[in-house]
Structures are given as C-alpha cells and as structure tokens.
C-alpha cells in the first residue's frame, strides 16, 4: 500500500527544491566579477559564430528576467550549449557520455554499503558490547572523519603502488577486448578501488544507525515473548528485530544520497574515472562554464530523483508514515 498523501507532499517539496536548485545554478555564475557577455561567452577558444550563438542561447544581450525565463526553458529542454573546451561537442553529449559511469559507481557502492551496514549493524546490536560492537563504533567515527579522497589515495598507494594488485587510474585498459566478458572483467577490475573507497567511507555510518535502532527494538516486550515462545534465533533476529528497526536506516539512506554523490565526485577525480566528477573537475580547471552549469544540474536532478525513490520505498516499508 502506498501512502499517496505522503508522496504528494514529498513530491511538492522535491519540486520546490528542483526550482530553487536551478535558480541557484542561474544566479551563482552571475556572482562572478565582470560582465557576463565577456566572461561567460567571450571565450577565445570559440569561433565567432559559436560565441554569437551562445550569447543568443543564454540571452546575455537581454535583461536579467528575460535571461532567467529563457534559461528555465533551455534547462528543462536540456539545452546547455557548447563546451568551451571541447567545442563543437555539446554539454548534453558530454553528460550523456559520463553519467552512466557515475551512476554505476554510486549505485554499486551504495548497494554494497547498505548490505554490509545492515548485516554488521544487526550482528553488533545482537552482541552488544562485544569486540565487533566496539570495533564498529570506532570504524564509524574514523570513516566519517577520514576524507574520502584521502582513503582513495591510500588505497592507490597500498594496493596499486606497493602491492600492484589493481590499476591506479582510469576505468578501462587502453586495448581491444577479445570478448564481452573480457570487457566486463576489465572494467570491474578498474572500478574495484573506487567502489572500495566509497564503501569504506560509507558502510560504517549505516551499520551504526542500524545497530542503534536495533538495540531499541531488542528492548521491546514482543522480543522477550518471541524468545519465550522458543522462536528460532534467526527468525527472532531478522524477522522480528531487524524488520522493525530498518526505518531509520532508510531515512539515513535518503539523507546520505547527496553526500555519497559528493563523495563520488572526489573519488572519480583521484582515480581519473570518466564520470561526472572528472567532468566537473576538468571543467573547473578549463573555465568551461557551460559544462560546470550542466553537470551541477544533472547531479541535482539525479539526487532529487534518488530521494523520491527513497520516499516511495519508505512509504512501502511503513504505511503509517505521515508528513
């Protein structure tokens, strides 16, 4: 059963968020000192007709309200113009090329981190005060404090440089593949370290949340009743306790999506992984303003969509939810 009222009110908030985000994406580049027609569209790397085209596209010769109206239309139509650095490639083309890599990276690591966090959290709560439990708390606080790009650099130093098990950069080898399996194996081998970095940086906070929620459920009377009835331990642990303790973790997942996306950008930069992170990093260094704007837009949309999916999941898991 889906709670329509909850989803509608969440949907409205997400829609408002969307408009605020794209408005910020319009305002922030205009905070820069200097005349936008010269700064944004007068890049010498562009041929004159492309410059004309850009000025018209962003309406830079018009007043700010017309600019904003045209910006909204262009954004919704995914029309971000040309890349300054890689002219005549359009920003949309670049994003379409890079987005699947980031989605794969974030999706895989979040899935692994959730499963790992769930199991460790349940076990730690079940054995409260044990070695595993204490270790988990320290891992969580350390993983939270360690910068994700630093974890990435240490993994490269140890596993790629000293032990030579994994490649240091990129997402695939520069060679022709003999088969599809060869290609998949090679890409997995290349993404192992980036995925490992994101899992290390995120699993412990899920585990800790799961543990704390689980400990509260374990105090409930029905747990003692279940025990007295002689229910099997795993039914008690997973069917009774974990099932009822999962909601805080779902909330945390929704809240952490934006953070993990941010972390993924840094991981991609360290590994030169061809996703949105390296796209935005290269664009920052090359002063490629249309690419910066387009990438931020796509990240925002991805995060908002992911939030909505989390909300739907939430209302499935807990039909009582109210907003």
């Amino acid at each position: 059963m889906v709670n329509t009222r909850f989803l509608v009110s969440r949907g409205i908030i997400l829609l408002v968020t969307y408009f605020i985000a794209i408005t910020l994406n319009f305002i922030i580049p205009r905070l820069m000192v200097g005349d936008p027609t010269t700064v944004i569209a007068a890049d010498l790397r562009l041929p004159p007709e492309a410059r004309e085209n850009l000025i018209r596209l962003f309406g830079l010769d018009k007043d700010i309200f017309t600019q904003y109206r045209e910006y909204l239309v262009n954004t919704i139509l995914l029309n971000f113009g040309y890349s300054f650095d890689k002219y005549p490639t359009t920003v949309a083309q670049l994003i379409v090329e890079r987005l699947p890599w980031t989605v794969f990276l974030v999706g895989t690591s979040v899935a692994i981190a959730i499963v790992l966090g769930f199991i460790l959290g349940v076990e730690a709560a079940w054995r409260r005060g044990s070695m595993l439990d204490n270790l988990l708390q320290w891992t969580a606080i350390s993983a939270w404090s360690a910068p994700v790009f630093w974890i990435a650099m240490i993994l490269i130093l140890v596993l790629a440089y000293y032990l030579n098990i994994f490649p240091t950069t990129s997402a695939e080898s520069a060679r022709l593949y003999s088969s599809v399996f060869d290609m998949i194996a090679d890409r997995l081998w290349h993404s192992a370290l980036p995925i490992m970095t994101l899992v290390i940086s995120n699993f412990a906070i899920y585990a800790l949340t799961m543990r704390n929620a689980m400990i509260e459920v374990l105090e409930e009377d029905y747990m003692r009743l279940g025990e007295a009835k002689g229910l099997p331990r795993n039914t008690l642990k997973y069917g009774y306790a974990a099932r009822n303790a999962i909601l805080p973790m779902v909330t945390l997942i929704a809240l952490s999506i934006a953070t993990i996306f941010g972390g993924a950008l840094f991981v991609e930069i360290v590994f030169s992984y061809p996703g949105l992170g390296t796209l935005i990093y290269d664009a920052l260094n090359a002063r490629d303003y249309p690419v910066i704007q387009g990438t931020f837009y796509i990240i925002t949309v991805a995060v908002i969509l992911a939030n909505f999916i989390a909300d739907i999941t939430y209302s499935f898991l807990d039909p009582r939810v109210k907003y």
Binding site: I20, A21, L24, F261, G262, F296
Partner: peptide
C-alpha cells in the same frame, strides 16, 4: 535534499 558538496564547489 540539495547536493551540498557540489553546490559548495560551484
């Protein structure tokens, strides 16, 4: 909800 890190970068 807004991805804060990318926003801070920009």
């Amino acid at each position: 909800i807004i991805p804060i890190i990318p926003l801070q970068i920009i």
